[in-house]
């Protein structure tokens, strides 16, 4: 579903991602882990079309991603951001936020679809006309997830979706993401440095170091604490 071939990404003169090749199957959940500055968020931004200075090939499903604004990307993947306080428009109610993508693409039955989406992410209907500042962090992240799902994309990009939340709320949001994936057959591409989240939510992970992919391995090996590369095990030991 997601395929990267020799992907290199540049910020001006600096090459932050070096020749990364990856293949993620349909319906899989893949995590990219690494320290901050390793380039994992940059890869995510390239997939999201926010970073355009890259070489190589990015394939999403049957579509080969173009540089710059790619209209096909909208229906293919959507993103859930790290900070639920910054990813919702502060003056738009839940209803306005969720119906906006429908209005952009002139999709009908907005009323029903908004309510369905709220039900799907477990957000009580009474919150429909609340503004973001009247919601808790977990509720906001549910809104952000519902928004990402409004256009029914097969791929969901997750940028540390729980790191800004309280521990108790983290579990709720992770459970929600897990069940949504099962219900909708979504493909997840997760970026995080939180290894317990990886073992809960993902089947596969890639370890990124200084822009280079050191290893791709299954979550089973992560759970056994037995990664192939030295660096992977180092990361693992640091997270305990």
């Amino acid at each position: 579903m997601i395929e990267l071939r020799n992907l290199s990404i540049f910020y001006g003169e600096t090459q932050v991602v070096k020749e990364v090749s990856l293949s993620i199957a349909r319906g899989a959940s893949f995590a990219l882990v690494g320290e901050s500055g390793s380039g994992k968020s940059t890869i995510l931004k390239a997939l999201a079309g926010q970073v355009t200075d890259w070489t190589g090939q990015i394939r999403l499903g049957d579509h080969s991603l173009e540089h710059g604004r790619d209209p096909a990307l909208v229906r293919l993947c959507q993103m859930v951001f790290q900070d639920p306080f910054g990813s919702l428009h502060p003056r738009k109610s839940v209803d306005a936020t969720l119906s906006e993508p429908l209005a952009i693409h002139r999709i009908g039955r907005q009323n029903e679809r908004v309510l369905e989406a709220m039900d799907a992410v477990g957000l009580a209907r009474k919150f429909r006309f609340r503004l973001p500042h009247q919601l808790s962090g977990g509720q906001r992240q549910r809104v952000a997830i519902a928004r990402a799902l409004m256009l029914n994309p097969p791929i969901l990009l997750l940028d540390e979706p729980t790191s800004a939340l309280d521990v108790s709320v983290q579990a709720e949001v992770l459970n929600l993401l897990k069940s949504l994936r099962e219900d909708h057959g979504l493909t997840y591409f997760l970026v995080t440095h939180d290894l317990p989240v990886v073992s809960f939510l993902c089947d596969e992970l890639g370890v990124l170091r200084n822009g280079e992919l050191t290893e791709v391995t299954s979550v089973e090996r992560l759970k056994q604490g037995n990664l192939q590369s030295e660096y992977g095990n180092e990361l693992l030991s640091k997270s305990h």
């Binding site: 959507q78 951001f81 900070d83 910054g86 952009i104």
Partner: peptide, 13 residues
């Protein structure tokens, strides 16, 4: 450059 602007741009606005 905030995320809610990125989000709406990703939705094709």
């Amino acid at each position: 450059n905030s995320e809610f602007i990125s989000a709406i741009r990703m939705q094709g606005a």
